[in-house]
Amino acid sequence: MIKKVFIFVLLLGVGSIFLSLSDNFKEQKELKGIGRYYAENAADELGAANLVTAVVVTYRGLDTLGEVSILFLTSAILGFILSLKKTGSEDDKQVFLPASEILVTASKVMIPIIFIFGAYVFINGHLTPGGGFQGGAIIASAIVLSILAKPESKISHSFISTIESIAGIGFIGAGILGIVLASGFLDNRIMELGTFGTLISAGAIPIIYIFVGMKVGAELTSILVNLKETKNIE
């Protein structure tokens, strides 16, 4: 009982803080500060049509590097914890029910299309909504479909980790090239900016986003495959 009263009082307190916060919030009429700078200069400086991409990849590229590392750490810790459980119980194989006919047939058509759509999303990240994270998630969902259609198939861990390492090295390498050839780490002006609004433009942003997309896709795939290969707990 005392616990319920305590929780109620806590929620009331947090709620009143929120109420006064939104009461004091003044509606923005125009862009201020850093947002204004990005809106005025990002298109000319970096040549990216999508300003969110310009912020994520170049202006705050270091944050993206940290984010990708956190995702990598997650998949590494997850693999470590789940592999501790798998040892010593390799003798009994998992039994899978066969997937339905419709799912198997549809997956053959859908998986290549979903892969191409994911690649489209991260290659066009500087022009349209989308980018490496969304594209990587779409590719991982194609892998989910293939796992559902063929539960007994194995997805090679070394293949996933190879792609992941190549993408990571490429991402860091593009960043270091920015120090050498342009003005700082992860600067995208190591290449010609090109015509504004075309596919090959915005310097290194498409290349960095392709690496981010591959890396995120590989990490999410590794999380899913690790969870799939864990034995059911009896």
Binding site: V121, P129, G130, Q134, A137, I138, S141, L224
Partner: peptide, 11 residues
């Protein structure tokens, strides 16, 4: 919106 739909509600 794309990220939330693909990651938050899908994966």
């Amino acid at each position: 919106a794309m990220t939330e739909a693909a990651i938050g509600s899908g994966l």
